[in-house]
Amino acid sequence: RKEMTAACTPRRRIINLTSVLSLQEEINEQGHEVLREMLHNHSFVGCVNPQWALAQHQTKLYLLNTTKLSEELFYQILIYDFANFGVLRLSEPAPLFDLAMLALDSPESGWTEEDGPKEGLAEYIVEFLKKKAEMLADYFSLEIDEEGNLIGLPLLIDNYVPPLEGLPIFILRLATEVNWDEEKECFESLSKECAMFYSIRKQYISEESTLSGQQSEVPGSIPNSWKWTVEHIVYKALRSHILPPKHFTEDGNILQLANLPDLYKVFERC
């Protein structure tokens, strides 16, 4: 597991931080080997919608929660590849102030007048994250320049770009939802926020969305749709870069829909 690298990086740093090793061990302890084997050997059937997909393993048909699986995938990559990410360069710098204002204007932020003026909160978020810029760049390849612009994001899987519609809320939550006081809790909560931002979430995906850094293989055609990215990038990574937690067998994120021999018997009677 320590050699797990989802995106190509030129050289690998050895990380011996106790906090990170502890988080890696927790993933191992909570892992479910049968689910790992199923995901490793599954045959992708198709997307139901951005949140759900169908896959077959041996004779069984499964309904998989793409949102939760991708979130767990990105969390584990962030923990196992800690401080070893490439950088996704933004085509132009994104001012943190503008991103924070967009987030505060969104109902998702939960902002009320009692929280104070949005401009003041946005300025605080910019200054707060600028103070964390060195650590964010060093460990997470999340790059913020001296003017308070976001200029780079971590490359977690080759050819995958997170849904940038979720970027404003991500920046807001970096400042408000991460435990910045304790090292282990900081790395864990920061990785979880980043994983949620990178995950496939239906509120940020339309039929026209593209999450891939590449064009489709047909010359002159439109960019790959999110469905292509889910199948050929995300579920491909799920084959080798995730140890599913045991609770996925109990919380409805992986559901067995049918045993195909039983279905064949039904059709034979028709």
Rank of each mutant, 00 (worst) to 15 (best):
S109V: 11
I79K: 00
K184N: 04
M38L: 13
R89H: 12
V230A: 04
A83S: 06
E182M: 10
Y264C: 12
E29C: 07
V218A: 12
H57E: 07
F140A: 01
F85S: 04
P117Q: 07
E165K: 12
P163V: 09
R239Q: 05
I125C: 11
E188N: 10
H247V: 11
F128M: 14
L61T: 08
H40F: 12
V126C: 11
L142H: 01
L99I: 10
Y62E: 00
L260T: 15
R201W: 00
L150N: 01
G252R: 05
A7S: 08
L35I: 08
H32C: 14
S109H: 09
S221E: 15
L102A: 15
E193M: 04
W226S: 00
E119G: 10
T5Q: 05
Q30Y: 08
R11W: 13
W111A: 05
T229L: 06
P93C: 09
I77N: 03
I169W: 08
H42E: 05
F44V: 03
A94W: 14
G86T: 15
I222L: 14
L88T: 15
K2Q: 14
T67F: 03
E217N: 12
K68Q: 10
E33D: 13
Y264W: 10
P245E: 01
Q215T: 06
A53N: 00
F187W: 06
P219K: 10
E217F: 09
K131D: 15
S109D: 05
P107C: 10
I222Y: 12
F82E: 00
S240H: 14
L260R: 10
G152P: 00
N259K: 04
S91Q: 14
M101A: 05
H40E: 15
Q256H: 08
Y160H: 02
D115S: 09
E182I: 14
G220T: 11
V45F: 06
A53W: 00
P219G: 13
Q51I: 05
E231R: 05
D138Y: 04
P244S: 01
T210H: 06
Q30S: 15
E231S: 03
D115R: 14
L90C: 05
A122L: 02
I254K: 02
Y62R: 00
N179S: 12
F128T: 10
S141P: 02
L64T: 07
I171A: 05
P10R: 04
L39R: 01
E250I: 09
L243I: 08
M38Y: 03
E143T: 08
L260M: 12
E37L: 07
H40R: 14
Q24H: 05
K60D: 09
G120P: 07
Y204E: 03
E134A: 07
G152V: 03
H42D: 00
P223L: 10
I171H: 00
E250P: 04
W228D: 07
E71T: 06
S106H: 08
C8Q: 12
E165C: 09
P162K: 02
G220S: 15
N41L: 12
E25I: 05
G46K: 15
K2M: 12
D145E: 05
P223S: 15
T5A: 06
L54I: 15
I15L: 06
L156Y: 01
V87E: 15
E26R: 07
A53I: 04
G252Y: 04
D105C: 12
F140V: 03
V266K: 15
L21V: 12
K184Y: 10
S106K: 14
E146C: 07
A83V: 01
F170T: 02
H40L: 10
N159Y: 05
R12S: 14
L102E: 14
F170Q: 01
E183N: 03
F267G: 15
Y198S: 02
N41A: 10
E25K: 09
T112G: 12
S191L: 04
D98T: 08
S189C: 11
E123G: 11
S106T: 11
L172R: 06
E25R: 09
P244K: 01
L174D: 00
L121D: 04
Y139M: 05
H241K: 09
N179D: 11
L255P: 03
V234K: 01
I144Q: 03
S225C: 13
P168M: 02
R269N: 11
P117R: 08
E29F: 12
V20C: 04
C186I: 03
M135G: 03
I14C: 12
N253P: 10
C194Y: 05
G213R: 15
Q30M: 09
R13F: 07
M4A: 06
Q256R: 12
N41V: 08
N179F: 08
K60F: 15
Y235S: 02
T59G: 11
L17G: 04
V230I: 09
G252I: 04
A103H: 04
R12A: 15
P219A: 13
Y75L: 02
A55M: 07
F267M: 15
G110N: 14
V266N: 15
W111Y: 12
V20G: 02
W226Q: 02
Q24N: 04
L102M: 10
S91A: 15
D181K: 08
R239S: 04
P168G: 10
S109N: 14
M101D: 02
S212I: 15
L260D: 13
I77A: 04
Y235C: 03
F140R: 01
D262T: 08
S189L: 10
I14H: 10
E29G: 10
K118G: 05
G152E: 04
E92H: 08
Y160V: 01
Q203Y: 06
M4I: 11
I14L: 12
L142R: 01
